[in-house]
């Protein structure tokens, strides 16, 4: 049965953090609402606690270049990311997945912070952000002053629906370091529809080509393990080799070996592995072609 004992819409970060500190693990943060409202109004209504609507908190929306990083506010919606000129120019792989995210109605609501905090193994935004070496900023109160810590996405995700976020903490921003010059990345969300699909698997790859050889290789996989993750084995396979068919095949083989997908109603583990192979092979060649 639903029981929201308290509702608040704080108008400053400090106020929001005070509320989170006060309610601890009973606090329910409302951002885009696309996952939370399901649990309030959906078939399995089971949510209790204190609802903290952070939408009025200033400074949590938008993409800015700060020094050598891009800072993306946690409340930036997928639609805003999809249309943002900075994202389009400097993080095209992120813009691309935003175009393949759920539906217009959901893109208008869902936020980058919510997508990550929800920590679905198939979270659409996770794979491009892993490729971009993104880090998350987590704010909390120290005394009565906000302080922030930063974690890599890899450290942030702990399991399906589980993150390193502690009681009293709020994800405020995603920080993306400027990719190395010449870095190109692509990703593929497997499915039959342009967007309105839960990812069966998603596969991302990015690298620079230097003197005909791959450098700074990054490979990320979604829905192949309890969390979205980077695939160091495949990265190692790519590093220092030419972006040709043999390399693509070898990297795909490494990724398949590293993947630990499950069988569920959407696909078998076999098919998920198969798609990792097919898409990684294709995407390595694509990125290599430039």
């Amino acid at each position: 049965m639903v029981r929201i004992e308290c509702y608040s819409a704080p108008t400053s970060l400090r106020e929001a953090l005070q509320l989170l500190a006060k309610y601890g693990d009973r606090a329910r943060v409302l951002a885009g609402g696309t996952d939370l409202v399901l649990r309030l109004e959906g078939v399995d209504r089971d949510l209790e606690g204190a609802l903290v609507n952070i939408k009025q908190v200033p400074g949590l929306v938008g993409v800015r270049a700060v020094d050598d990083v891009y800072r993306i506010g946690a409340l930036t919606t997928v639609t805003e990311l999809r249309e943002d000129p900075v994202v389009a120019e400097h993080m095209p792989v992120l813009a691309d997945i935003c175009d393949h995210f759920a539906s217009g109605q959901i893109r208008n609501a869902a936020t980058i912070g919510g997508n990550l905090v929800n920590a679905s193994p198939a979270a659409d935004l996770a794979v491009p952000l892993l490729l971009l070496d993104a880090r998350v900023r987590l704010a909390s109160l120290e005394g009565d002053q906000p302080r922030e810590r930063e974690l890599s996405l890899g450290d942030f995700f702990r399991g399906p629906g589980v993150t390193a976020l502690e009681a009293g903490e709020l994800l405020t921003a995603v920080v993306v370091p400027r990719p190395p010059p010449g870095f190109r990345a692509r990703m593929r969300k497997a499915g039959t529809r342009p967007a309105m699909d839960i990812s069966i698997v998603s596969v991302g790859v990015g690298f620079c080509v230097d003197g005909g050889l791959i450098r700074d290789a990054r490979v990320a996989l979604g829905a192949t393990a309890p969390t979205p993750l980077r695939c160091p084995a495949a990265e190692k396979t790519l590093e220092g080799r030419p972006p040709d068919a043999a390399t693509a095949r070898a990297a795909a083989q490494s990724a398949v070996e590293a993947a630990r997908p499950i069988d569920d109603v959407r696909a078998s583990a076999w098919y998920r592995r198969h798609l990792v192979r097919v898409h990684l092979e294709r995407e390595v060649l694509h990125v290599g072609r430039g």
Binding site: V37, E41, L51, N53
Partner: peptide, 18 residues
């Protein structure tokens, strides 16, 4: 689907308080 601030949204996934 309804519009909130001119944007299409799924009203079943929006809280009234929002």
């Amino acid at each position: 689907t309804v519009m909130i601030g001119g944007q299409a949204r799924a009203a079943c996934l929006v809280l009234a308080v929002e």
